[in-house]
């Protein structure tokens, strides 16, 4: 399931819903991305996340489908927030449920690595000097490349 929203999410509640009523599930993995208060030695007061409505949902749904083709998952979830977020706030949740841990770990890692380089989101950091756009990082491309077949 995909959700793109400005509202916060409750990780415990989301994981509970992900496994509810399915006794086949033996493993749940999750990744939660948070807003940091520092970037490149500068203090960050807030972060504004912009996205491309429509394409975001389409791209996330495509990659979730691919994860489900590649790994034996019982269920999966991607929640990504947009709008103005402050340090400590949740940005993203990726969760995968499977019978065994290997599939759940790998699929979760695949989803977040892919999402960071393909999902159309952009971050604007608010610092004392004003706003600045976060630049894409080469290491994120390298992290995604390892999942290419």
């Amino acid at each position: 399931m995909i959700r793109v929203q400005s509202a916060d999410f409750d990780v415990g509640l989301e994981l509970k819903k992900l496994t509810e009523g399915n006794r086949q599930i033996g493993a749940v993995t999750s990744f939660v991305g948070l807003v940091r208060d520092i970037a490149d030695k500068d203090t960050i007061s807030a972060m504004v996340l912009e996205h491309y409505p429509g394409m975001t949902e389409k791209q996330l749904a495509d990659i979730e489908h691919e994860a489900n083709q590649r790994w034996d998952l019982n269920s999966s979830l991607i929640i990504h927030r947009y709008g103005r977020l402050e340090p400590g706030d949740n940005i993203v949740l990726v969760a995968c449920a499977s019978s065994h841990r290997e599939s759940a770990f790998d699929a979760c890692h695949f989803l977040i690595d892919w999402l960071k380089t393909k999902a159309p989101f952009w971050k604007l950091e608010e610092t004392s000097e004003g706003g600045r756009w976060v630049e894409a990082k080469i290491k994120d491309d390298i992290a995604r490349a390892r999942w290419e077949k």
């Binding site: 491309y52 159309p120 952009w122 976060v134």
Partner: peptide
Amino acid sequence: IAFFPPVTGG
């Protein structure tokens, strides 16, 4: 047709 910088979500 959309034009945008390299993405930085996650």
